[in-house]
Design a protein around this nucleic acid. Sequence first.
RNA 1: GCCCGAGUGGCGGAAUGGUAGACGCAGGGGAUUCAAAAUCCUCCGCCGCAAGGCGUGCGAGUUCGACUCUCGCCUCGGGCACCA
Length: 869
Amino acid sequence: MARYTPAEIERKWQDAWEADATFRACHDPARPKYYVLEMFPYPSGRIHMGHVRNYTMGDVVARFKSSCGFSVLHPMGWDAFGMPAENAAMERGGHPKDWTYGNIADMRAQMKPLGLSIDWSREFATCDPDYYGQQQAMFLDMLAAGLVYRKNATVNWDPVDMTVLANEQVIEGKGWRSGAPVERRDLTQWFFRISDFADELLEALDGLENWPEKVKLMQRNWIGKSRGLQMAFSTVDAPEGFDRIEVYTTRPDTLMGASFLGISPDHPLARALERHRPDVAEFCAECRRMGTSEEELEKAEKRGFDTGLKVRHPFDTAWELPVYIANFILMDYGTGAIFGCPAHDQRDLDFARKYGLPVTDTFVALDGGEPVGDVAFVPPKTEPVRWVRAFAWDEVATGEQAVDAAIRFCEENGVGHGVTKFRLRDWGLSRQRYWGCPIPVVHCPDCGVVPEAKENLPIELPYDEDGTPIDFSIPGNPLDRHPTWRNCTCPKCGQAARRETDTMDTFVDSSWYYARFTAPHAATPTDLAEAEYWMNVDQYIGGIEHAILHLLYSRFFARAMQITGHLPEKAREPFDALFTQGMVTHEIYQTRDAAGRPVYHLPEDVEGGKLKATGEAVEIIPSAKMSKSKKNVVDPVNIIESFGADTARWFVLSDSPPERDVEWTSAGAEAAHRHLGRVWRIANGIAEEMDQGGGIAAYESEGEGAAPGGEDDLTLRRALHKTIHDVTMGIESFGFNSSVAKLYAFTNTLAKSAASLPARREAAMVMAQLMAPMTPHLAEDIWAMLGGQGLIARAPWPKPDPALLVEDTVTLPIQINGKRRSEIAVPRDMDAAEVEKLVLADDAVRKALDGGAPKKLIVVPGRIVNVVV
RNA sequence: GCCCGAGUGGCGGAAUGGUAGACGCAGGGGAUUCAAAAUCCUCCGCCGCAAGGCGUGCGAGUUCGACUCUCGCCUCGGGCACCA
């Protein structure tokens, strides 16, 4: 008996698609286009189930839209720059370039058997000089347009390895390799002026109707627009040039509860003091012995240092407040100085209690009104409170009203002015690393910082040094110590100059790849005609972990590209719809090296809690996001080899709602495979019946005009059209798991159906079409064996017949006091009065009423009845 | 610490404010088979012999009716600007 053989049919149909160029994106002005994009992968060397899930979802959308008549663009590329390549070179030798391109070849080979409807002719990697050369050209245009500038910024510095560390490389305040306490260090770096766009990036979120609310909310909070008061406190006995300290506050209404002034350790006053005061210098140095991440600063114990300086309260010059240097105040936000109001801010309160500073209530709750103890009173700004130290508003007012009044009062009295500030900072793009896009500028002794000439692009990364491969075992930036690469001539004056040795943040690479896919081989960054046709991305799909940075940077970049003429106006917001898929999680296996640092292991290297190679026991850390660095990734190649790509695809779609996390298990894979085998056998059985009945030709004349079948045929057709409707709705709303469930249910219906052969043939063919976006190879095979014309991939999507979707009778559940107790079958359109009569005649209802009348009787037509007794 | 999510049977999960547990996994029973595999049929939230009662993380609230809406907690996950 014939069997389902995925290994054979998957190869067969992939070859057929290849020969047909089915997935080649066609710039066809006559058809509407649809651009579906999944976030491109980092080429770690192996695909994992997260990739399979991500790309299968995109593939379902791409194939579905294609069947619906759209000209689809569905490309794939590689986010190929970044630290792991350099780390690999350090750990295992070799070159980042060879490692990366080797990984890309491996991953492409693992991905192709999935049968994704990708136009591979558009593939590129961000580390291709052709790509990053165009990126350099855009950088120069953005520099000319004033979108890029240089300023000082703080980095994590490893004093032993003499190298800059990423936040990820700082573990508990120490360098991951050296173990040395990390220091903060200032470097001159390049920045994109994203904060100039803060307001626009915020406002435009409202127009992104097909983005998840939570992502927009996260971006709103990240941009952090606030209205507040900027004002100065005058100082007493401060050093020269510091007779005033500017502070920014969002709660000027609490000014009468001020208790101290806090300044950042990086504030100019702190820096001035530390020059002459060893005690200040020591405290500031200690503050700087910490990483740069906000998380680390916020989690650190809140500490302050009393400078001994005082400031005068603006409303009462006799009232003096102490000035503290505090480790939790960021120089990057506001003015780097705050006033503390302990009664209405928990952090200020903790600080005040710790250093014995006064706590003064400025308002109390309407009911009660006990003074603040160890919990600050911080009601929502919209809640009315009773003010005990108001200075320009009513005794009872909300925080909002008080803030507005306070700003007005301060402005009228010459104490500062209302300002709007954003939390969003400019985007620092300089990285002191090798494996990234070189920043195309030159440092000339006479001309200073000079943009490289466009004709010299791309500025390529050097592969070796003096004929020998670059040695990555030495910490630090190989470009910086390369013997010749830095040497160049000034594009302006022609004399000897030095090349910039910093490379770009890899977020730059991923901020415009979607645009490059529309014309991947163009001699300019984009081709405006192609961008005009293909942009925007109609459906973008990726992980929630990119909700803020990648997506915000991309939104900024689209604007910057438009300003510099690389994208049309309509691409200002590049992603029309966003879907954030959940992550695939897995256990983490960890051992420790001699120095006690964690070493992670791939699941396939672990068996029964021990390393296969050495037998060493591993520590099992509970399921977490699959990540390259933790090595808790599962290799889907094994699944594809034993069950086929369709099984892998069907399984990742079936088990969990797409936006939710899923823990990968092997248990369901066999079930998925069993089901696909069953579907194939049902179709094959129908094909064999057809053969016995005279072959396909005998059924070709059937169809619309054919004699109506019996009751069984009608029942099957009703179920089929309901399934068409449900599966289509599922795909359109990203409810792939629901679509899969409906297809399971319909398979059962079809298997048990006593309908005529033509009806079952039709049902099997339509079912194949409905399955085609998910299990495309199986669908093609069934389509072919049942006599379908051409490729199912090119067949139009089936439409449900509305007449077959409505049922004549419905079952109404009867609730008594909200609990289901009975049910009645009634004609679909029976009026409520008739229904009521039937309900009151129902045994369960009569029993519950016990002869009395119901208190209330609610009839929701066609849905439910509730009797309140 | 701050911002954003998620919690439903043994497990993954379904459910425009309207029958909680669709569909699948695991498990039980049966058919077929010399036997097994494969396949097919069937049962399956918890307590209870039953009648019935209890059930969507916990506690309140709104409603004729709450997994769904509101408020307060708990737990887990994501992000926090140099991981990608």
